[in-house]
């Protein structure tokens, strides 16, 4: 399966465990998925579901100490698990790049923004100082920063959050990566700016012919911008399928709860949002059954005892992990 030339990314049984003083913490527990060229994949889940750790582990960007990673990540044919940082560094920036969550903290506060962009160009592509500067200004313009040649020498503190996130995107795109990991790229921004940044990412994806992994807790963000969605809970994939399937024909109760708890414009005013009872599990004390069982209205004894594996749904590419799935559309129709 790893030899399929259309697959840019093949993740197989990837697990990330932090070795904490309180015991091993399985932040990501055995995740497999793949990504086609020029595809946009959404990863959704609550805070603490392990999506950020997953994104970083896929890139190989996990902390250097106190962490164990097993499984396999093939990035454009290169294995990223179990190799040295020097080896991974060859692919960072050029094959895969990341847009970080909070532009307030992800830019170096004491380095001019232009320098942060052309550093990549000079170090990775060996550009001359002048060429790199010209390219950096071009990138700033591309991501929609007004008067880029002046902003080139600004410090991050002199820019607004939205502008800073544009700079982060420009930095990530500097070496034309084939895969862009966008980790909650709009969470730290004003609502009015969020759509602009997402549209920018979408445009750039076309322009750079990239694949994008879009990580978010906000289903509204992925609804129209992704072709497939992965739903994560407690470090595992609980449902995965085309965006359309996941939105309209989800089987896992957690997915439904997640959908119901996000507000919709079509709802009449003063509609009470449905919340998910309970709280995300403590990863240090996971039960042996389904992690969602304690919060699930449909949970049975089996759910508490035995962990459900991903099973294929009716539609191709759609799978879910649940012992008591919601009825599919077809089942509902025949009933």
């Amino acid at each position: 399966m790893s030899t399929n030339p259309d697959k840019l990314l093949v993740v197989n049984n990837l697990a990330t465990t932090f070795n904490t003083s309180a015991g091993p913490l399985p932040a990501v527990g055995g995740v497999s998925f793949d990504l086609n060229k020029n595809e946009t994949l959404g990863i959704v889940g609550e805070s603490g579901s392990g999506k950020t750790v997953l994104a970083r582990t896929v890139m190989g960007l996990q902390p250097r100490t106190n962490v164990t990673v097993t499984g396999s990540v093939l990035l454009n044919g290169h294995e990223m698990v179990g190799v040295s940082e020097d080896e991974k560094r060859k692919y960072w920036g050029t094959e895969v790049a990341m847009v970080f969550q909070d532009p307030m903290t992800s830019l170096n506060p004491v380095m001019r923004i232009g320098k942060q962009i052309d550093e990549t160009l000079r170090v990775r592509l060996g550009m001359s100082k002048n060429d790199a500067k010209a390219k950096a200004i071009e990138l700033l313009e591309l991501v929609g920063i007004p008067s880029p040649s002046q902003r080139y020498s600004a410090f991050p503190g002199q820019l607004s959050g939205g502008m800073r996130q544009r700079v982060v995107i420009a930095t990530a795109l500097a070496c034309s990566p084939k895969l862009l990991m966008a980790d909650e790229p709009t969470t730290g921004l004003d609502v009015t700016i969020q759509a602009q940044i997402l549209n920018l990412l979408e445009d750039l994806k076309e322009q750079f012919q990239m694949s994008v992994v879009l990580i978010t807790h906000d289903l509204g963000v992925v609804a129209t911008r992704t072709s497939r969605i992965i739903v994560m809970y407690a470090g595992r994939i609980v449902e995965m399928g085309t965006t359309r399937e996941v939105f309209t024909n989800h089987r896992m109760p957690y997915t439904r709860a997640l959908l119901e708890s996000s507000p919709k414009v079509s709802n009449p005013s003063h509609t009470r949002l449905i919340t998910i009872p309970g709280r995300p599990p403590n990863l240090l004390k996971l039960n042996q059954g389904c992690s969602f069982a304690p919060r699930c209205a449909y949970a049975t004894d089996r759910c508490h005892q035995q962990r459900p594996e991903l099973q294929i749904a009716e539609e191709p590419g759609h799978s879910f992990a649940c012992w008591n799935p919601l009825p599919s559309k077809r089942e509902a129709a025949t009933r």
């Binding site: 932040a27 805070s47 750790v53 902390p63 709280r279």
Partner: peptide, 27 residues
Amino acid sequence: MSEFIRETELSQEALLEASMVERPEKN
């Protein structure tokens, strides 16, 4: 009010997620 509580709980979880990356040790 209950939404508010949910919200704060979620932000605590967000803290937990952040702390997973750099978990401070006990005293």
